[in-house]
Design a protein around this nucleic acid. Structure first.
Length: 175
DNA sequence: CCCTGATTCGC
DNA sequence: GCGAATCAGG
């Protein structure tokens, strides 16, 4: 593989989003995490704040981790802040658009704190990473949760709950 | 042992 | 320029 403009752009994007070198390598495909790190340095992209371990994603102040608002079933699309997770010294959040119709089946209960996905590619999954698929397999950004899955479970603790949660556990009135 | 990024240096 | 090997750390 060579560093085409396209791949360099994707590298820049993912690196700026705070993904780790190995995650980026998996998403690009055909390169090692060392290759990614090497390229990052050659491009003089800003490194991570502290060396070692901690993933330093862009901090997103936003509002505090109040109870996430459940998506209204009345409107098809709603925005919900889903993520707050302590990762080292870094608090990660993300706001996503949810399709309230398609979301029903695996909808987390209100007030549940949803861990941010590590967004691993297929080749990056190991015995102890969560294999919960995220997104449309036919689309480009399809990935797996990738968070730690303890006790040889195929899923992280959060997605274990999702996997065994009754499908019809939802309120009919009052969202 | 899992993982992280940083650096070196032969290619 | 590239990236494996290595280093240093959580």
């Amino acid at each position: 593989m060579n560093w085409t403009d396209e791949r360099v752009e994707k590298l820049k994007k993912l690196w700026s989003e705070g993904l780790s070198a190995s995650q980026i390598a998996a998403q690009l495909g055909g390169v090692s995490r060392n290759a990614v790190i090497g390229k990052v340095h050659r491009l003089n992209l800003p490194g991570r704040a502290k060396a070692g371990g901690t993933t330093t994603a862009a901090r997103t102040p936003k509002r505090s981790a109040a109870a996430p608002r459940a998506a209204s079933y009345g409107s098809r699309v709603a925005t919900r802040t889903v993520v707050t997770r302590q990762q080292g010294a870094t608090m990660l959040k993300e706001e996503i658009e949810v399709d309230s119709v398609n979301e029903i089946q695996y909808r987390p209960a209100a007030n549940v704190v949803v861990p941010i996905s590590r967004r691993l590619g297929l080749t990056e999954l190991t015995e102890r990473t969560c294999k919960w698929p995220v997104g449309d397999p036919l689309k480009d950004d399809f990935h797996f949760c990738g968070n730690d899955s303890p006790d040889s479970s195929p899923y992280c603790t959060y997605h274990q709950r999702m996997a065994y949660q009754p499908v019809h556990d939802r309120r009919r009135n009052n969202g």
